[in-house]
Simulated assay, not measured.
Amino acid sequence: METQENSPRLTSVLTCPDCGHTEAETMPTDACQWFYDCKGCGAVLRPKAGDCCVYCSYGTVPCPPKQAGDDCCA
């Protein structure tokens, strides 16, 4: 299967800063995700100051708009 070089990666592994739980999630392509409920401890994750979404703060892959070189989620 061939992948396009410009296609964003849509899966990111979020790591909870409170309990260390990790979870692979599929990122939305049409909106920011400002909140995420940790499946390990129930903490509500919010973006760190200066980040546009939880994936940019706690994920292994930044959100699709950041991958495309945009400033923030649309």
Rank of each mutant, 00 (worst) to 15 (best):
Met1Val: 11
Glu2Ala: 12
Glu2Ser: 11
Thr3Met: 10
Thr3Gly: 00
Gln4Ile: 07
Glu5Val: 13
Asn6Tyr: 12
Ser7Asn: 11
Ser7Glu: 15
Pro8Arg: 07
Pro8Asn: 06
Leu10Asn: 09
Leu10Glu: 11
Thr11Asn: 10
Ser12Gly: 05
Ser12Asn: 06
Val13Met: 06
Val13Glu: 14
Val13Ile: 15
Leu14His: 02
Thr15Val: 13
Thr15Phe: 01
Thr15Leu: 02
Cys16Met: 09
Cys16Glu: 04
Gly20Val: 06
Thr22Ala: 06
Thr22Glu: 15
Thr22Met: 12
Glu23Leu: 04
Ala24Lys: 12
Ala24Ser: 15
Glu25Trp: 02
Pro28Leu: 10
Ala31Tyr: 05
Trp34Cys: 11
Phe35Pro: 00
Phe35Ala: 12
Tyr36Lys: 05
Asp37Ser: 12
Asp37Asn: 11
Asp37Lys: 13
Cys38Leu: 05
Cys38Trp: 04
Gly40Cys: 09
Cys41Trp: 05
Cys41Gly: 07
Cys41Asp: 12
Cys41His: 06
Gly42Asn: 07
Gly42Val: 08
Ala43Met: 03
Ala43Leu: 03
Val44Thr: 15
Leu45Arg: 04
Arg46Val: 12
Arg46Tyr: 01
Arg46Trp: 00
Pro47Trp: 04
Lys48Gln: 15
Lys48Asn: 14
Ala49Gln: 13
Ala49Val: 08
Asp51Ser: 03
Asp51Pro: 00
Cys52Ala: 13
Cys52Lys: 02
Cys53Pro: 02
Val54Cys: 09
Val54Ile: 15
Val54Gly: 03
Tyr55Lys: 00
Tyr55Ser: 01
Tyr58Glu: 05
Tyr58Pro: 07
Tyr58Gln: 04
Gly59Thr: 08
Pro62Trp: 02
Pro62Asn: 07
Pro62Gly: 03
Cys63Met: 07
Cys63Lys: 02
Cys63Pro: 03
Pro64Asp: 05
Pro64Gly: 07
Lys66Arg: 15
Lys66Cys: 12
Gly69Pro: 06
Gly69Ser: 09
Asp70Pro: 00
Asp70Thr: 00
Asp71Arg: 13
Cys72Lys: 14
Cys72Asn: 10
Cys73Asn: 08
Cys73Thr: 06
